[in-house]
Write a protein that binds this DNA or RNA. Structure first.
Length: 498
RNA sequence: GGCGGUAUAGCCAAGUAGCUAAGGCGGCGGUCUGCAAAACCGCUAUUCGCCGGUGCAAAUCCGGCUGCCGCCUCCA
């Protein structure tokens, strides 16, 4: 059972065989002209899952995710906002990295910026000129597409086919309309770097070749990015890289499907997008993660409140099972249930929907055995298995702090006093004294507080004071804590996820 | 126009020849209960866009048609 990945280059599922003992992965990150939207996060999530799975399989992994921080759009923004391009770029990079951190997206080993690798870029351009694959015209340098015989291999296009649909603007400076700029002469007021061809800046594409080769070597294992980058971006990267080195560039090309909004691709250029920061206001990182992993990475995924709410309900089902008190201490070093099935799913081109279905199967299996003493060990092993898989998939344990519960408790206490039930309060609070004394941190305080309120409520229920009991239930519900009464007279609660 | 992808239940989504077509959401029924459900259990596709073909056998392979999405210009 080996890992297989779908390679866009061959359009086939291929067994993963690394080139060296450290797997090199390059992810095309953002052109940082604006803040990150949900589509960008999906691409990052693919890198995250791929990296996590490779690490799980025992590989060492070096990951690179670039930022293209000099380009036409950012320069336009500079003119519009009268803000230096570097500030615009770094501001958006920061927003992106913060969002990734919140989502527990594993950090790339390096986040290189185009602007900080001019030497490598200029050297690569020079190399292309020296080998006759590029030519200089009035400070611009263009790559000769027709000189590279394999051009179009990745996107399955030929230069002649492209010609038929030609929407590309022919430039007087280009020898052929399909030649693309690897270096652009700077216009007045634009940022520039000194080069053998005068003041200028890199064209789009060349930075990715230069930076990936710089950090990962001229040939490396995996290149990832959104499907929309296949042409022209990745096609051009391949052409210029192989032209310069005569070596294979990246071996596996992985492309994720886009996120759609009302059926159409999310894209910042059209203004048709939803910002990740906005999304994180309403949904927790785990829910966003489940939402994204519910669909296999190559398929497109619709962004909607309905889909997110669906993920929220689904995640609650897992979280509800794991919150059982008996799972505070779980057995270590167990063989997880359904490990072969899980591994097989993930090895099959990162089939996360299948992998998740195994987790849900385990939840059902565990729930069936709930409340039976003789199955306690099995239940714990199931819980441990679920946690094991959740960790592999990058889910985190979220600790909720319910500070607002203090107000609820105050109100309940006052109401008790008003109804002359001081003794009831003292009895129950007394029982909790030891527990409260042994608290290590805040995360333990609030569950205890909830349990204290539930105990008070249950006493009131026994006294048939349902008005008061319902009041407590209502107050807790206001804070997303929903109470339900079990058969033993004990009540449990469930925290509604955000 | 060229190229690529996709079509599976009310919705989402796995499955690419052979046991009863995963899983999730929703809905329905039940459990429990003073009430309650936001918990738990069960049920929920004789059938995989349409037509034809090849196989003993097809959602899965081949041909044709239709719908949707995308790339060919900046895009994750």
């Amino acid at each position: 059972m080996a890992l297989k990945l779908y390679n866009t280059l061959t359009r086939k599922l291929e067994e993963f065989v690394p080139k060296k003992d450290v797997v090199g992965i390059y992810t095309c990150g953002l052109t940082v002209q604006g803040p990150p939207h949900v589509g960008h996060i999906r691409a990052a999530m693919i890198r995250d899952i791929l990296t996590r799975w490779l690490l799980h399989l025992g590989y060492k992994v070096a990951t690179l995710e670039n930022f293209t921080d000099v380009d036409d759009k950012i320069i336009e923004k500079q003119k519009e906002n009268k803000t230096d391009w570097r500030i615009i770029a770094e501001d958006n990079i920061e927003k992106y990295i913060q969002a990734c951190d919140k989502l527990n997206i594993i950090k790339a080993t390096v986040y290189p910026r185009a602007s900080q690798h001019m030497e490598e870029i200029i050297n690569l351009v020079q190399r292309l000129i020296d080998k006759g694959f590029a030519y200089e015209k009035e400070g611009d340098v263009y790559f000769k597409v027709r000189k590279f015989p394999d051009y179009g291999k990745l996107s399955k296009k030929s230069v002649d086919e492209l010609m038929a649909g030609a929407r590309i603007e022919p430039s007087a400076l280009k020898e052929d309309p399909f030649d693309f700029a690897v270096w652009k002469a700077a216009k007045p007021g634009e940022p520039y770097w000194l080069s053998p061809w005068g003041k200028g800046r890199p064209g789009w594409h060349i930075e990715c070749s230069a930076m990936s080769m710089h950090y990962l070597g001229e040939s490396f294992d995996i290149h990832t990015g959104g499907e929309d980058l296949i042409f022209p971006h990745h096609e051009n990267e391949i052409a210029q890289s192989i032209a310069a080195t005569d070596k294979e560039f990246a071996h596996y090309w992985l492309h994720n499907g886009w996120v759609t909004l009302r059926g159409e691709k999310m894209a910042k250029s059209t203004g048709h997008y939803f910002l990740i920061d906005e999304l994180l206001k309403d949904y927790s990182p785990n829910i966003v993660r489940l939402y994204l992993l519910k669909t296999q990475y190559r398929n497109q995924i619709e962004f909607s409140e309905e889909r997110l709410d669906e993920a929220k309900s689904a995640y609650s089902r897992i979280a509800d099972y794991l919150k059982e008190k008996e799972f505070r201490e779980l057995p270590k070093d167990i063989k997880p249930f359904m490990l072969d099935e899980f591994t097989e799913a993930m090895n099959d081109d990162l089939n996360t929907p299948k992998a998740l279905s195994i987790i849900f199967d385990l939840v059902t299996k565990g729930n069936e055995k709930l409340g039976k003493k003789e199955y306690e060990n099995e239940r714990k092993e199931i819980a441990a298995s679920i946690k094991y898989y959740l960790t592999i998939l990058g889910f985190t344990e979220e600790i909720e702090y319910h500070r607002e519960l203090m107000t609820v408790f105050e109100d309940v206490r006052n109401k008790l006093r008003k109804e002359h039930k001081n003794k009831l309060l003292d009895d129950i609070a007394g029982d909790f004294l030891d527990d409260f004394m042994s608290i290590k941190d805040e995360s333990e305080f609030f569950p205890m507080m909830i349990n204290l309120l539930l105990r008070i409520r249950n006493r009131l229920r026994k006294e048939k004071n349902f008005e008061f009991a319902d009041y407590i239930r209502k107050r807790l519900a206001e804070h997303r804590i929903h109470v339900y009464d079990g058969k033993t007279g004990e009540s449990t609660y469930r925290v509604e996820l955000k």
